[in-house]
Amino acid sequence: MLRLAFGLLAESSFRCKLIQVVSSDVKPVRSMCSWTVCAHHRQRNQLSNGLQHANVRRASHSTLDPAEVRKFQAMASKWWDLQGEFAALHSMNDLRVPFVRDNLLSIHGMQQEGKPLTGLRILDVGCGGGLLSEPLGRLGADVVGIDPVEDSVRIAELHSSHDPELGKKVRYQACTLEELAEEEAEGFHAIVASEVVEHLADLDVFASCCQQVLKPGGSLFITTINKTRLSYVFGIVAAEQLLKIVPSGTHDWEKFISPEDLERLLESVGFCVEAVKGMMYNPLTGAWSWQQSTPINYALHAIKRKEEPQPDRVCPENENLEEPGRGTSYS
């Protein structure tokens, strides 16, 4: 991350603008709160006006944040523009697809040559236009992509229709996670929620629903943004206001969550966190890379416990295992 910071600050015009914006807009960093306190802050955002679009699903006691839905409703037609607002998500596939594949293979083993995820059922929460659903389907998984924005789902269906093989492996549904949970108890081997949790109204509901729809021993994969000074400066000030990597207003720093708080939340509903890895985006190259620390973006892999934990051992904490993608580091 420091390499990126020094590279950006090397430009004097950028430096002056960055200092000006940060000095006036940067928010004070509060001490790391427990997940219950974070939930209290999130619930305040849930009390907003009703949905203004007829083609957006409604739900009560929901993960759905109407303001966030409206943002993505406005961008629904741009999911497959490789140079547009979602360019960084396209390039993120270079990290997140292998992260999901390799961790699933370490649990389930190779199922079929060329289609290693054959036989596995994966839920893509907040699938958008299908940017992650499609490559997982091409790896052989049976993928269900869900999103509350119906226009995004239609874009995903249209794009996948150009590949007849995907029609057999990937299907989409316009709904919320809690709506699906009513029908799909323990129906999936894995859930992916990539760049989603920072847009939700209620992470407690999200975690409980993930636990409900996963099979015992199933995997939950999350990529999101840490809640730090650097995440505000580079995730919002630089990415949105200066470099215009994503539209202004895409992210709300108050909704970011640290890996420590996310791990506590997941463990409280029956998960063991197996891996947390830092991620870095370089706007000059448009590429992502893995990092040992997690000051901005990070990826997390958790597993639903198969049985009630023993009193003396709930989850392995910070075990730096020598397997790909495993071990936890927050430094």
Rank of each mutant, 00 (worst) to 15 (best):
Q46I: 15
V246E: 04
Q83S: 14
R171C: 14
L8Y: 09
R42L: 12
E150W: 00
S91M: 01
D312Y: 12
G50I: 14
G128D: 01
R264F: 09
S60E: 11
N103R: 00
V144I: 08
L243N: 04
G84L: 03
A275C: 02
E195M: 08
D147P: 05
L2D: 15
G114F: 06
K304P: 05
G50E: 15
P311I: 05
N103A: 02
K244F: 11
E308W: 09
L203Q: 11
V196W: 04
S293R: 11
R96G: 02
A190W: 00
H90R: 09
R15F: 05
S60M: 10
T223H: 02
E274F: 03
S248M: 11
D163P: 00
M110G: 07
E165I: 08
A141M: 05
D312G: 12
R101A: 02
C315L: 03
H108F: 03
S329M: 15
E195D: 10
L214E: 00
G327K: 01
G187T: 01
H53E: 14
W290L: 14
P148G: 01
L139Y: 09
K169R: 08
R121D: 03
Q111E: 09
V269G: 05
F188I: 00
R121I: 00
F6M: 14
L266S: 01
G145I: 09
C127I: 03
L82N: 11
L18H: 10
H159M: 06
L64H: 11
S24R: 11
C38F: 15
V170P: 00
F221Y: 02
L89C: 00
Q292N: 15
T224S: 02
S293Y: 03
I122C: 04
L2Y: 14
L265Q: 06
E317P: 01
V69H: 02
I107A: 07
L18W: 06
N320L: 12
Y330F: 13
P135K: 09
Y298S: 06
V213D: 00
V197F: 07
E183G: 06
S268R: 04
S248L: 11
Q83G: 12
K244D: 07
W288P: 07
A5G: 09
I236Y: 05
V273S: 05
E195Y: 05
A76F: 05
L123D: 03
V269S: 01
R58K: 12
D65G: 13
G130C: 06
I303Q: 10
Y172G: 08
A275L: 01
L9E: 03
E307P: 00
C127N: 03
F271E: 08
A174T: 13
T228H: 08
R96M: 08
T223R: 02
A201Q: 14
A201K: 12
F234P: 00
Q173P: 07
R264V: 04
Q173E: 14
